[in-house]
Amino acid sequence: MKKLLAAFLLGFIGYYLYTAFAGVPFGENKMEVGKDYLETTVPKTGAVNTVTSIVVNYRGFDTLGEVTVLFLAATGLGAILFGMKGKPEDKHREPSSILTTGAKALFPIIVLLGAYIFIHGHLTPGGGFQGGTIIATGVLILILGIKSFHANHALLSVMESLAGITFVVAGILGLAFGKNFLENILPLGTPGQVLSAGIIPIIYIAVGFKVGAELAGVLDTLMSTTRGEE
């Protein structure tokens, strides 16, 4: 009965969603704001990747809010799971020596890939969020592969705070030079070079460190709370 009611409701919602989106043509040019961004991104911001210049420069304030949401989620997760410490030696299987050696060998390469992705965020696809996530994946491999591994939460929170402060200071410097919050104050440089696009690489590197530290902290918090008493 409940399933029937749900199916009826879904059919209703699906029909109206379909009729709403049937009027939107697929694959046609219907840009209004996007056209302006595409035309002004290279001369105004110096970044080659338009998506990065929208995320960090045109809509930089939104990204600051997003990073704050991520920080609040990490803090809230720590608060929810606080005090849930199970027995340290329950029925986890020991990682095999292949996994341990592989984790140790792979971790620097994964961190290098993540750092490459967020340093070149304004030139190639990628950026701080992707690079930070890849670094967190490397930390996950370490957590899985090495039995006694525990992330250093003090170091992680220092990294995260420094990255957040860098982001805010880069914004306030714009105000100090008589411009808007998060407006570019550095020279733009040649588009296509690594050292170009003003404050975009600085902010994206800060975002990469912040996201990487937060997600690594989240994974470690989740892993260290073991199964509740049986």
């Binding site: 595409l38 991104t41 080659v48 990747n49 998506v51 995320v55 809509r59 030139l123 190639t124």
Partner: peptide, 20 residues
């Protein structure tokens, strides 16, 4: 929407706003 080569123009690109 990445100006990776010199010949690319804004007319031949998809909308970057939904992607962001």
């Amino acid at each position: 929407p990445i100006f990776s080569e010199p010949g690319l123009t804004a007319d031949a690109m998809v909308d970057p706003v939904p992607q962001a």
